[in-house]
C-alpha cells in the first residue's frame, strides 16, 4: 500500500539560510505523526513544504503516490507542475494554521461552506447541511452565524478544523494549532484532534504539546537544525535511553507537562 505522504530529500533555503537540510519521511495512512523540535528547527517549514505553501528548494513530496508541486520530468530533472495539478493533489490535504486564518467577512458556517460552493460547486442548501454537520462535530453548531471576531481563539480554531474537514481530505496537516491559544482553550482544540485521530484520520501535527504528542501520536519525528534526528514510536523516542539532544530539548518543557514522560 502506498504511504499517505512521502518526503524525499527535501531541502529548503531562505536566502543563504538552509532551513531544511535533506529530509526523508514516510507517513503511513492512519498514522498520527507529531513533528517536534526546538524553535527554528524547520518544523513549520517542513509542513508548509509538504502542503506546497512554501516551495522546497530541492527534493519531492508525494501525496498518496502523486507528486505535489514538483515532479521529475522525462529527463529526470525537477520540474514545477502546473497550478491545476497542484490543486488536484492538494485536494487530498486539509490544513489548520497557527493563526486560524478564518476569513473575517464570512460567518463560521460561511467559512466552512465557502469552498464547498465556490470550488466544489455544491448547491448552497446542501453545502449548508454539510457545513452544519461539520460544525456539530466540533461542537459549534450553535455558533454557525457568528463571525470569527465573535468567537474565542479555541472556537475559531475548531471552525478552522471544520472548514478543512468539510472538503473531506485524506490527510490533515496541523501547524502549531494550539500555539496562539491560552492553556484553557488549548484543551478543547486538542480534544477535537484526539477525536479525529481515533477515527483513523492521517494526521501530521507540528506541535509544542509534548503531552499530546506522547499520548495521541503513534509516530514522533524530532527535527533539529533542519535535519530529521529521530523518527519512531513515542516509546522509542521518549523512552530511555534518550538522545542527548532530545533530552536537552525536553528539559525546557518539564514545566509544561512533559514531566509525565519522566
Amino acid at each position: 500500500m502506498t504511504a499517505a505522504v512521502i518526503v524525499k530529500a527535501l531541502r529548503k533555503s531562505f536566502g543563504a539560510t538552509e532551513v531544511l537540510r535533506g529530509i526523508d519521511l514516510e507517513v503511513a495512512a492512519g498514522d498520527v505523526t507529531c513533528i517536534i523540535g526546538p524553535s527554528g528547527s524547520g518544523k513549520s517549514t517542513l509542513l508548509r513544504c509538504i502542503a506546497f505553501l512554501d516551495q522546497a528548494t530541492d527534493g519531492y513530496v508525494f501525496v498518496q503516490g502523486e507528486p505535489l508541486g514538483f515532479a521529475p520530468d522525462a529527463s529526470g530533472a525537477r520540474a514545477r507542475l502546473p497550478d491545476a495539478r497542484v490543486r488536484d493533489v492538494r485536494a487530498k490535504i486539509g490544513m489548520v494554521f497557527q493563526q486560524f486564518n478564518l476569513w473575517p467577512h464570512r460567518t463560521a458556517l460561511g467559512n466552512v461552506t465557502e469552498a464547498l460552493t465556490t470550488v466544489r460547486g455544491i448547491a448552497p442548501a446542501e453545502a449548508r447541511e454539510r457545513g452544519l454537520a461539520q460544525l456539530r462535530k466540533v461542537g459549534l453548531a450553535a455558533h454557525a452565524d457568528h463571525f470569527p471576531a465573535q468567537l474565542s481563539g479555541g472556537q475559531q480554531q475548531r471552525v478552522a478544523i471544520a472548514r478543512a474537514l468539510a472538503l473531506e481530505p485524506q490527510i490533515m496537516l496541523f501547524d502549531e494549532p494550539t500555539s496562539s491559544l491560552d492553556p484553557e482553550l488549548t484543551g478543547e482544540v486538542l480534544n477535537v484532534m484526539r477525536a479525529l485521530a481515533s477515527e483513523g484520520m492521517t494526521m501530521i501535527v507540528v506541535s509544542h504539546e509534548i503531552g499530546f504528542a506522547a499520548s495521541v501520536a503513534n509516530r514522533i519525528v524530532f527535527l533539529d537544525g533542519g535535519k530529521l534526528l529521530l523518527n519512531g514510536t513515542p516509546k522509542e523516542v521518549f523512552g530511555q535511553p534518550r538522545h542527548p539532544r532530545l533530552e536537552q530539548f525536553l528539559e525546557t518543557y518539564l514545566d509544561r507537562g512533559a514531566a509525565i514522560l519522566a
Binding site: A51, L53, D83, R87, R90, A91, I93, G94, M95, F97, Q99, N101, L102, W103, P104, E114, A115, T118, V119, R120, A160, R163, A164, L167
Partner: peptide, 13 residues
Amino acid sequence: GLVEAAEMAGFSA
C-alpha cells in the same frame, strides 16, 4: 494566511 487558507481549500487565483 487568509490567502493560504483559500489556496489549501482549492481556490484558483
